[in-house]
Structure formats: C-alpha cells, structure tokens
Amino acid sequence: MSALKIKKGSTSHSAYNLRPNFSDVIERHTLAVLVENEPGVLARVIGLFSGRGYNIDSLTVAEVDHTGHRSRITIVTSGTPQVIEQIKAQLGRIVPVHEVHDLTVEGPSVERELAMFKVSGTGDKRVEALRLADIFRANVVDSTLESFVFEITGAPDKIDAFADLMRPLGLTDVARTGVAALPRGD
C-alpha cells in the first residue's frame, strides 16, 4: 500500500498513477501532514480547507522534531474518494508541506484522542460516574465534593461513548484534543 504515499520528489509510484475507481460514497480519512514549522503554515492548511470547501472533522498540530523544525498535522476529514484525492493533492502542493500520508488507506493505524470531562453531581449519580470512569479507565485529575474532572484517552468513538454515559450524570464541560494517529508496525 506504500504506493499511495504522496512524497514530493518522487517520479513514479505516486497516488496519481493509480487508477482509483471513484464512488460517490462519503468516506472518513485520517491524514498525517508533515510540514516545515514556519509561521503561517497552519493557516495555509486551514485556509485550503475553508477556501475549497473541504471538511475538517478534527485537527491537531504540534512540533514533533524540534531540531528539524517539523510539525505533524493530523487531520480527520470526510468526502467522496475523488474529494479525498483532491485534498491530498492540494495539501501536497503547499510549499512548506513535506509529506502527506493517508493513514486510512496506507495500512493499519492507531488513533488516540485525549479528553477531559467535568461531571457535577452528588449522591448516586456521583458514585455511578466514578464507577463508569473506572470501567473506561478514565483518571480523576480533579475532585471537589460536587464534581470530578476525568481524563480519558482512547479512540474517538470510545470517548463519544463515555460522553454519552456522562451526560445524564451531570456532564458540564468537555475538552477534547482531536485525533493523533500513527501507522502500526514499521
């Protein structure tokens, strides 16, 4: 599947030499974009999505190589296969973008997101919240007599499930980091 890796400077085996059978089904893809960490680079990426009408379901960014000044932007987006291909090609065109990887098609990958939930309540609800947090392996990072702040890490659907359970138990605030993802194995 490495043929789908879009790397600047490659002459063949790029995604564009594949003959994809485009369908109209909306797909969700996780893209890893390795960029030069220079001012404005995130604005370029975000501006591309807004300017061309693409979706951003989640976006995370941080410098991952401090000496090489590389940042990794993880974007979860959705669209038809033709739109996904177009997004990858447009990202690859941005000058400070070094590599674009489509983790959804390049092979198995792991996705994780960190979230914090503030749940306020007393009595049975408070006990139930703590019990469910334990099942989900969420940690208590702050506690008062009327509230907990839970920290949970997992795939986005696990976090969604936890949020659904906390809502009737007094969920008041949520903070989520967005998805970070890496391919499995080598």
Partner: peptide, 18 residues
C-alpha cells in the same frame, strides 16, 4: 505538472504527472 489538476474536474483514464 500539478498533481492536483488531475481528476479535479474530469476523471481521466491515463494520468501523467510531469
């Protein structure tokens, strides 16, 4: 020469980036 031009509007059978 621009990969993003290919399959942007019209789906093509033989794409050549160069």
């Amino acid at each position: 020469i621009d990969p993003s031009s290919i399959n942007k509007i019209i789906r093509v059978d033989i794409p050549i980036v160069g």
